[in-house]
């Protein structure tokens, strides 16, 4: 089947694992993308490549994952259910495997009504639990119809969970279903309430899942307000907003907050996933300060 990914090895070994997210370019000029990738290369175990994030059309997450491989960076290939039906999903997943990608993250995907092609047909032929199930079948050398493949995959399967979702009951059920379907690691939506997260982590750990807590770099107080008003599942608490507002250099303060969160997580969690949203050059400082 091929070797285990570095991400899997590190998590199984019990290392505190740091991943970060990079967003493919809106076009074919990959220079900026690769520059950012090189900046974070030595600070992360793997880098997530987003899949038409927020339903904005960008260079393919599969192509960018392979570009990362060529740079010696291990990608986490993100795949959403929004843009492909079950045939395209399976063939792209197998394609990623043959090109050397070893980690995959299954997501539902933001609705097209949030993106730049609002007239598009939203596919959602599978949902994220079914997507995890599909990858698990491919890992067992079978397609979604149960038919034996001439060579399967061996992905380290990840999924997402929102520990601060409100209400939490339905979210927890879906989380358990993802584990049952074959998800082995989870990257969470941005975490701000550490006490609440810790309680979630303790419950999640009992189910055998590896959890990477989401850290979202707050670039400014304005961004924090924007997130609260526009991004589902993200809740920046008032005291952090005030901390940003009270500083002379808001970005620097944001980096400080992120590294503080990272430090706290190191005390108990399996790892952290840093979402710097276009400010990837700050990732090394967040990691180094922690």
């Amino acid at each position: 089947m091929g070797d285990k990914s570095r991400l899997e090895e590190a998590l199984e070994r019990g290392d505190f694992v740091i991943t970060a997210e990079i967003c493919p370019p809106r076009g074919t000029d990959t220079r900026g993308f690769l520059e950012k990738a090189r900046l974070i290369r030595d600070r992360v175990v793997a880098a997530n490549v987003t899949d038409n994030q927020r339903a904005v059309m960008r260079l393919s997450s599969l192509a960018c994952s392979v570009l990362l491989l060529r740079e010696g960076i291990e990608p986490v290939f993100q795949m959403t259910c929004r843009d492909r039906n079950r045939l395209a999903i399976q063939s792209d997943i197998m394609g990623a495997w043959t090109l050397g990608v070893r980690n995959i993250l299954a997501l539902t995907g933001d609705h097209v009504s949030h993106g730049d092609h609002r007239e598009a047909k939203a596919v959602f032929d599978l949902d994220s639990v079914q997507l995890v199930h599909t990858i698990d079948l491919l890992n067992h050398g079978k397609n979604l119809k149960g038919r034996e493949l001439r060579g399967g995959t061996g992905f380290y399967i990840g999924a997402v969970v929102a520990p601060e979702a409100e209400p939490f009951g339905p979210e927890w059920i879906k989380f358990e279903k993802k584990i049952d379907a074959g998800a082995r690691f989870f990257q969470t939506q941005a975490v701000f309430d550490m006490d609440r997260f810790k309680a979630f982590f303790d419950d999640a750990e009992r189910l055998g899942a590896k959890i990477l807590a989401g850290i979202l770099l707050l670039k400014s107080a304005r961004m924090a307000h924007f997130l609260n008003n526009n991004v589902p599942g993200v809740n920046v608490p008032q005291d952090l907003i005030e901390e940003l507002e009270g500083s002379t250099d808001e970005l620097e303060k944001g980096i400080e907050i992120a590294s503080r969160q990272l430090r706290e997580l190191k005390g108990f969690c399996h790892g952290a996933h840093i979402m710097a949203i276009g400010q990837e050059e700050s990732v090394p400082r967040i990691v180094d300060l922690a």
Binding site: T108, D110, H111, A122, S128, A162, A165, E166, P170, G233
Partner: peptide, 25 residues
């Protein structure tokens, strides 16, 4: 709006749908 069969997506905000925030998920 996504026709999901196994539970809510991550877009639930205070129990409301991310696509039309006036609808409960």
């Amino acid at each position: 709006p996504k026709g999901l069969l196994n539970g809510p997506c991550g877009g639930v905000v205070g129990g409301m749908c991310e696509v039309d925030t006036s609808n409960e998920c």
